[in-house]
């Protein structure tokens, strides 16, 4: 039985880091998608994810600033980086996004994976959106949960992401021989990262998770991935090699020119 209620700073940061990385990865498609409509779709997804991340980081920053002694690492940016004043002296959405390093990130590993091909991208978006849908729907229905407002707002957008990614999986999985093969390859590749998401769901949510995935898998003529490699270390701060590169690209401007704005 998972311990997550998603109401502690660490848990909220995991949700925020997830959304931020999905936003960054989807934005990588901008200007590269196969057709203009899908280029726009991914940019829209990216905006939604980054919007979610901002709200969650702002909430986490407020908690951190209210109890600074409980979060010595997060209040101020690391001293080793402090050569270039002026740096933020309290936690903000930006300090949390731009001044934390690989071991500080608590995201699920699936969100840091490279986009790969189109099939891999839609598979990532689907599984991640399904996870978000289950988590945020529960939070949205829980009176007094600190993230209730954010969750209510976010669930509406997640529905749209789910529908979009499902349509693509169905179209590719049940399409031509080549599209089917590519979708199956993506399905197999992402599969190893699913237990990490599933383990952070309640029993009832896990049941729903299994049912949704099985139904889509059948409808799309895909077969269950054959993999025994499970990776689930994201929330301990142990990541794949990919996270360092994506953070470097995302954070370098803010770290080179602290507090720069346009």
């Amino acid at each position: 039985m998972p311990q997550n209620n998603w109401n502690t700073v660490t848990e909220a940061l995991a949700l925020a880091d997830n959304a931020l990385l999905m936003g960054q990865r989807c934005a990588e498609w901008c200007g590269h998608a196969p057709v203009l409509e899908q280029d726009i779709a991914l940019s829209n997804l990216s905006l939604d994810f980054i919007g979610e991340a901002r709200l969650l980081y702002q909430w986490a920053a407020d908690q951190i600033n209210a109890h600074p002694t409980a979060f010595p690492d997060l209040v101020q940016t690391k001293e080793s980086l402090a050569g270039k004043a002026p740096l933020p002296t309290e936690a903000t959405e930006d300090s949390l996004a731009y001044w934390r390093d690989v071991p500080d990130f608590k995201n699920h590993l699936i969100t840091e994976l490279p986009n790969g091909d189109w099939a891999q991208t839609v598979a990532k978006v689907y599984f991640f959106s399904l996870f978000q849908d289950l988590v945020f729907t529960a939070i949205a229905a829980e009176p007094g949960h600190p993230l209730q407002g954010i969750a209510q707002k976010t669930t509406k957008e997640i529905q749209y992401h789910l529908r979009w990614s499902k349509e693509w999986i169905l179209r590719l999985g049940d399409g031509t021989a080549i599209s089917h093969q590519k979708m199956q390859t993506a399905w197999d590749l992402v599969w190893a990262y699913l237990p990490e998401l599933r383990n952070d769901l309640s029993e009832a949510q896990q049941k729903s998770w299994d049912q949704h995935i099985l139904a889509l898998q059948e409808e799309s003529s895909l077969t269950k991935a054959d993999t025994s490699i499970w990776s689930q270390t994201g929330k301990n701060g142990q990541h794949t090699e990919h996270l360092g590169y994506v953070l470097a690209e995302m954070q370098h401007l803010q770290r080179t020119h602290p507090n720069s704005q346009w």
Binding site: S46, L47, D48, G51, E52, L55, K153, E157
Partner: peptide
């Protein structure tokens, strides 16, 4: 009340 989370 914001319309969409990420709406600039």
């Amino acid at each position: 009340t914001p319309t969409y989370n990420g709406c600039p």
